[in-house]
Amino acid sequence: MPWPLNIDPQQILLHWMNLAILTGGLYFLLYKPVKEFMAKREEHYRELDRQAADKLAQADQMKSEYQAKLDGAGEEIRQARAKAQQVAQQSAQEQLDQAEAQAKQIVAHARVEAERVREESLRDSQQELRRLAEEATRRLALRQDPFDQFLDLAEGGKRNESR
């Protein structure tokens, strides 16, 4: 008994075979290679995106590091300035103390020297006086010199005045 509408199972099977060949052929020749290429390109751009994101993250990290360093540098500068001021003050104080000590030393030395000069002058003048006295004594002892005469005269005049 023929099928209605001229349906032919043999021809249906031939169409199936035809469709199976077409599906397999198009899959291997077109669908799969194009999809693989698209996946490869997608992976390429995803990799670029990942690299860009990594670089962005690195840049952000570097920025934060440099910002931290910058913030630290401000503090460091402040500390260094304070330390330099402290050192300068300490140095000035040391120089002041040193100058004061040196001044004291100079004054003490000057006093000692002055004392020494005074004593030496005293000693020299005493020695000179002694020498003069000795000379005068010696001269008096040896002869009547004009000085003795003068003294005699001086004594005689005093006597007349007293009268």
Partner: peptide, 11 residues
């Protein structure tokens, strides 16, 4: 062709 349509539908 009805056979082709049936083949595609059933496949």
């Amino acid at each position: 062709d009805v056979n082709a349509a049936i083949a595609l539908g059933t496949l």
